[in-house]
Design a binder for these strands. Structure first.
Length: 593
RNA sequence: GGUGGCAUAGCUCAGCUGGAUAGAGCACCUGCCUUCUAAGCAGGCGGUCCUAGGUUCGAAUCCUAGUGCCAUCACCA
């Protein structure tokens, strides 16, 4: 039983005994560091029910608790705060339980299943820093939900069709000279991305030339020959033209290969994929049904709309007048398809940037109006943009931070720092390389995930991501130090797996146990809020607490055998929790660094 | 213009359902490596919590209005 539950019961009982009043609830908070005590009862809210001054009530309740409970060994009252001192024995018992629990904080998987969508890129250009945030968030939230007891399916929908990929295809046909990833040594997504840029360049030249000979700018932008040709290509694709489809398949294939490499390096994975080329027609049937049911209405020109003005939104198009699908149509179809594919799911999470807040608001509302009861279980995991000091990233202007390059840079930075510190003498080059990557990626992932998802991130490529303080490497470093202790403990044959016989705690040890104790609640909180930042901040606090102990007392040098055993056990458990928490963030931890 | 989000130390961020003197990191300054890894620890400096009202015993937190930044409101994605 949790200490809070025990105390709540006793406080309520005490108030009832002392004042014959039944409290609806009792408010607790951790005792501030500047006061003596472990947990604090806030007396102010009781004043509504009990007559008296906060200090009086606090004193009486404190005395009652001390008399009634063995674990309460003292108290003090400051203004309206009753600070309770809990016995070391309680925390030692608590730690015994925590230590024995090999999956501490992790709730066993239930049948409550949920689908998490993330990444979902277009296939005309490589992944960039914005995608990295999306991928890290989606992956981490999926892992957190899993740890909170849910069954999780990770998925993505790939936007593989449309005018954008046709542009790359056309440019490749024209300027490509048959280049392939193999012939150029380029990653497939990079190669295709280059042609997307090449298209834009050629397009701009054409537009400028037309304007020079007197064409109106707007007309030129709409009628540049290369653009018209790309649109022709899209029509051919939709008509199933063999040559176009073959080219489309070939170039998309290159892109997928490139993406896979990036995902692998980033350490994210998926249980399933959907392609828009497979699903873009699905929504149309639903729209047709919706017209019959009166959810949608057709205008004279043939376009189909939904009126959401009653809900405070506006009219939204769901089908163009030429009968082709818009994004909304596809998303309706995709959602329905997913529910069909996963009969056990009880909710879906869409990891998509906050620029699409409105889109998802409308999508969920439409699905609800269509009568799908599961529409209430959809959640848009909306996150802020990653901006550069110069503003928004724009792929056509070459201001994007490329995902692969960034990971490579982080690895290089990790190498430079490691070499300077020179702690890896007997590591092989391969071991070193994998460690540099682990640290570099750790820095990057933590840097992005520690920020509340809904806040935008300002990323300055000039100032490299930190490796000190509240950072991934700092936490990895602590983990490595712990492993070093455990290796030595093993070597020196300390009987540290034995049952604890200790009766008293160092204040730092107590603080550490308190911090360990809240790990399970932290996972639940992170899951409820879809926020890896909650996990990141928790881990940082835990690690700070451990380092403080580490510097203040000797662990293996402790002469009292029982104290030594406790400290080694504490170290081990802290290490396990770091590994577990970082696992939820998708960050690996090293044996040494 | 309508709607939504954000605003906390020079910079980057915490601050749980309202609770004590608003916390970390970076940067700057001062100590600490013959003893478990100094990517560390201990301490110092640094705040009109955007502004003005309101609710409350109590507001960074909740409500209202305003300011600033961002997004969105297209037969775009």
């Amino acid at each position: 039983m949790k200490i809070q539950d025990v105390l709540e019961k006793k406080v309520t009982e005490g108030i009832h005994t002392l004042y014959s009043v039944t409290l609806p609830n009792v408010e607790f908070q951790p005792t501030r560091k500047d006061f003596e005590g472990d947990i604090t009862v806030v007396v102010f809210p009781m004043l509504r029910h009990v007559k008296g001054t906060p200090v009086q009530i606090g004193e009486q309740v404190g005395a009652y608790l001390e008399k009634e409970l063995d674990i309460v060994i003292g108290f003090n009252v400051v203004k309206g705060f009753l600070n309770i001192i809990i016995s070391d024995a309680f925390y030692i018992d608590l730690f015994r339980d925590i230590r024995e629990n090999k999956t501490f904080g992790i709730v066993p998987q239930s049948d409550d299943a949920i689908l998490v969508e993330y990444s979902s890129p277009n296939t005309n250009k490589p992944l960039h820093l914005g995608h990295i945030r999306n991928n890290l968030l989606g992956y981490s939230v999926a892992e957190i939900l899993k740890a909170s007891g849910k069954k999780v399916y990770k998925t993505q929908i790939i936007n593989d069709r449309g005018i954008h990929i046709c542009k790359s295809m056309l440019a490749w046909q024209r300027f490509g000279n048959g280049e392939t990833p193999k012939s150029t040594g380029l990653k497939g997504d990079k190669l295709v991305g280059n042609y997307y840029v090449a298209f834009d360049k050629a397009y701009k030249v054409e537009v400028a030339a037309m304007i020079d000979v007197g064409t109106d700018k707007k007309v030129a932008e709409k009628e540049a020959p290369i653009l018209l040709e790309a649109q022709q290509m899209l029509l051919k694709w939709e008509a199933g033209d063999e040559a176009v489809v073959a080219l489309w398949k070939k170039m998309n294939g290159w892109v997928y290969e490139g993406f896979e490499t990036t995902y692998k390096n980033l350490g994210v994975d998926f249980d399933s994929y959907l392609y828009e080329s497979d699903t873009y027609l699905l929504g149309k049937d639903v729209v047709a049904d919706g017209i019959k049911n009166g959810v949608f209405h057709k205008k004279e020109d043939g376009s189909v709309w939904i009126d959401l003005t009653a809900e405070g939104l506006d009219e939204k198009i769901v089908l163009r007048s030429d009968g082709t699908a818009v994004y909304m149509t596809q998303d309706i179809g995709t959602a329905i398809q997913r529910v069909k594919d996963h009969e056990d799911i009880n909710g879906m999470v869409y990891t998509v940037g906050n620029e699409q807040d409105y889109h998802f608001k409308v999508l969920f509302l439409i699905l609800k109006k269509l009568g799908f009861t599961w529409a209430d279980k959809l959640y848009h995991l909306s996150y802020g943009m990653v901006d550069l000091p110069s503003g928004k990233m724009k792929s056509r202007e070459g201001t994007v931070v490329d995902a692969d390059d960034l990971m490579e840079d982080m690895t290089k930075t990790a190498r430079a720092i490691s070499e300077e510190l020179g702690k890896l003498e007997n590591y092989s080059d391969i071991e070193k390389q994998s460690l540099y990557k682990m640290i570099g990626l750790g820095a990057l992932k933590y840097y992005i995930l520690k920020v509340d998802p809904k806040k935008r991130i300002l990323f300055n490529p000039e100032e490299s991501v930190d490796f000190q303080g509240n950072t991934g490497p700092f936490i990895q470093y602590t983990y490595a130090r712990i492993q070093s202790i455990l290796r030595k403990a093993k070597d020196t044959k300390i009987e540290w797996q034995n049952e604890l016989k200790i009766t008293g705690l160092h204040p730092k040890e107590k603080e550490l146990i308190k911090q360990l104790q809240v790990f399970p609640d932290t996972i639940q909180l992170a899951a409820e809020n879809y926020s890896p930042a909650v996990i990141a901040n928790y881990t940082y606090d835990l690690v700070r607490e451990f380092n403080s102990l580490y510097q203040q007392v000797s662990i293996l040098g402790e002469t009292d055998e029982e104290k030594k055993v406790l400290r080694v056990q504490l170290s081990q458990k802290v290490g396990e929790v770091i590994q577990s928490a970082f696992g939820l963030l998708g960050v690996a931890v090293p044996e040494r660094m």
